[in-house]
Write a protein that binds this DNA or RNA. Sequence first.
RNA 1: GCCCAGUUGGCGCAGUGGUAGCGCGUUCCCUUGACAUGGGAAAGGUCACAGGUUCAAAUCCUGUACUGGGCACCA
Length: 873
Amino acid sequence: MLEKTYDPKPVEESLLRLWEKARLFRSVPRHEGRPFTIVIPPPNVTGALHVGHALDNTLQDAFIRHQRLLGRESCWVPGCDHGGIATQNVMEKQLKAEKIDRHALGREAFLERMQAWTRDCKKTILGQLRRLGCSLDWEREAFTMDDVRAKAVFHAFKTLWEKGLIYRGERLVNWCVRCGTALSDIEVEREERKGALHHIHYALEGGGEGLVVATTRPETMFGDTAVAVNPKDPRWKHMVGKKVLIPFIDRAIPVIEDSYVEFGFGTGALKVTPAHDQNDWEIGQRHGLPALKAIGPDGRLTAEAGSYAGLSREKARDQVAADLEAQGFLRKKEDHKSPVAICYRCNSLIEPLLSLQWFVKQTELAKPALKALDDGRFKIHPENWAKPYRDWLVNIKDWCVSRQIWWGHRIPVWYKGEEKPVVSLESPGAGWTQDPDVLDTWFSSALWPLSVFGWPEHTKDFEYYYPTSTLVTGYEILYLWVARMQMMGLAFEGKVPFAEAVIHGIVRDKSGKKMSKSLGNVVDPLAMMDKYGTDALRFALMAQAHPGKDIAFDEQSVLGARNFVNKLWNSTRFVLMNLPEKAPAGGYKLDKLSRGSLELADRWILSRSQSTLAEAKAHLDAYEPAAAAEAFYTFLWDEFCAWYIELAKGRLLGPEGPQKEATRAILVQILTGMLKALHPLMPFVTEEIYSALKPYAGESSAFVLQGGYHALDSDWSNPEAEKEMSLVMAAVSSIRSVRAQLRVPLDMKIAAVVEGPFAEKVLKTHRAYVTLLAGLESLEPFTARPPQSATAVAEGVTFFIPLAGIIDFAKERERLSKELAKAESDIVKIEAKVKNPDFLSRAPQAQISEAKAQREAACARRDQLKKTLEELS
RNA sequence: GCCCAGUUGGCGCAGUGGUAGCGCGUUCCCUUGACAUGGGAAAGGUCACAGGUUCAAAUCCUGUACUGGGCACCA
């Protein structure tokens, strides 16, 4: 016998062991059919998983299990990402706490520590994925920096190099002063910050008025190599071609014309600092201006800045502004909000810096990716992300792939004096030194769908699993990762690495704010699992995972899901309690039933069950787990438990016989079907229940995944039964409503008489249902209105319930008047429609007859209520 | 500035043309042998605003406001 409530922890622990022992998630190439394959978005080895990972991986697990249950060979590849800067930052924090200087420690020792950290972290992360129930093929674990992946990275680099798609050059890049490295354009975030616009006077060389420029960054003026004005700006026309002097250092720079400069902004004169601003860099390129570095990689001013050399950017700005003011150069200082660039890993201010870096040319690589999107070989769900994805590819810029950190794939290029650099994994010989930089972590991530299957080797696995089916990830890495995988996969193999991308939202806190450590609103998925069980967390997430939408995560939702899990548990418990100890040979099967012997409730629940399964399958096929979850929830709770089980009680308490056997078969088969269908969303509890139920269902699979979805033996859809059952339910509800309003508890049995067009049917075929569910002791046909009775009006039936001594007539009249008013207003609405000649002439016939039927029903109800009220007064 | 979402009962969200749904919360009643992690009942919404299309609009179109996001940015 099952326990009264479901206790997830021991069940989860034992099932995890059983699954693993059975190698249940193992996939190997087989000959027939294309497999369904997902490669995990490898979590960075920066710590533990957060609730966003729980969402991402539960989605994948649901899709993978769904496909397995559909009978498809399915493979989900696990792994972690070394995580470049992010992971190095974690280690640097640790070192700082231990008061160890990274540079004093040295590159080798640092990397050794990183390796040890990585080992621990991978163990933690993969353990957490296991606990989440992820059906990953654990024998395929990969890491973006292991030997196989290192070969892939080298091969990719070499191939791109040979095709001339990789180059090294001095360019203006996004430099994070804190991380001490260059970043690519998409690794930079923007934020509006308050600052000041300084109006600075630059004197004319050789004397004269000169001009005034406006800048938010006065400290960069030592790097100025021109002042630009708009060619159509009459205010500064006279200055063009002349030279002005930079304050303090008196270096003369030309005044040039460039249409980039806007009339309306500031003074209309722009100081041009090619080495520290992207737009200035472009102006510099157009006019052949030199680029002078006023700020170094350490964020401090260089020798160009004269006496300011060595000051940090921030200090220099204040100091320069103060000195300008003191010496009369500062003509005006006004508050000004402007967007600033921020490092996506440490949030510090980005400095545009001229430096020597490695780049991958992107335009050529983007073309096949665009084509794949346009001709449908690659699809994005939901599709509203396709446009931004496309726009990004169209406007793509070269990708800066070198990083001045230690943790990563070292750039495989070797130098020796004046000789041509050599691309090689190993040292080409004595005297050669390797490029000190490492590759952007996204470079190896971009190869992930290729590299996890042993690429560049065309292994058996690679041939079978590549291209993969679906990629599931958040929109925040659509460009950073998804687009690059498409480009790389197409460049190297001519095939999209995955045919579909499912883009989900991020998990926010319950008020919709982004989770962050500093806000203290981070939800720990492990804590949720401990408290409510893994299935509850999974179901809560899936129930809210509407395509592409963020989730406002409230712990209450997990509680609700936990209750649902328990409901499922207890409905099984009830069914098992009503089954013999020993299952009959072959189990309870529907095909053994004679259809003629089925009752209304049977036909109804079988019909509803079938459509629920079909609906949920369609939703999962379309990557819409939330809709599937809702279909299950409503069916199981509001139909199967609330009505069918309640009705089944009547027969199960009765004598043994075909009726009882039929009820058992239906309960067992419907529950089994639902368990399997729910398995992708909540694998643990369904597995556990299945093991108890399967002998009765006549099944022998050790695990749900091995048996596949439950196939109903024939078509049970039955709209007539659904319609009739809805009338019965409405009739029952009307009596319950009267009872509740008059405070007559359900266990106080009452008598009733019934009249109306549906009354005869109720008396003849549904009497047992109505008396059982509405708590009646008797139900008789109407002859005369009993004195002192309340009235319950439903579609087609009116019940009179004698309640001498209980009923308050004033209250009863009030209640009925309210119902009447509602009925009247319904009629007004439907009349307006039915009487509209345009509606009658233009609407489809089905609509017209439905509307008329609605009017009839509403009028009948109105008349009945009116009559009853008259009798009461 | 351009583009994309969103705006539905107290809160969080479904719902893409035919008389508004769900979960949580609220109110009342009920410890009846699956489940109080439960059961029954009820209250609560002119579906942001303004136009338009249509017999019919939460749903389609246009515009406005607000919120969020993406991209590009004025130094």
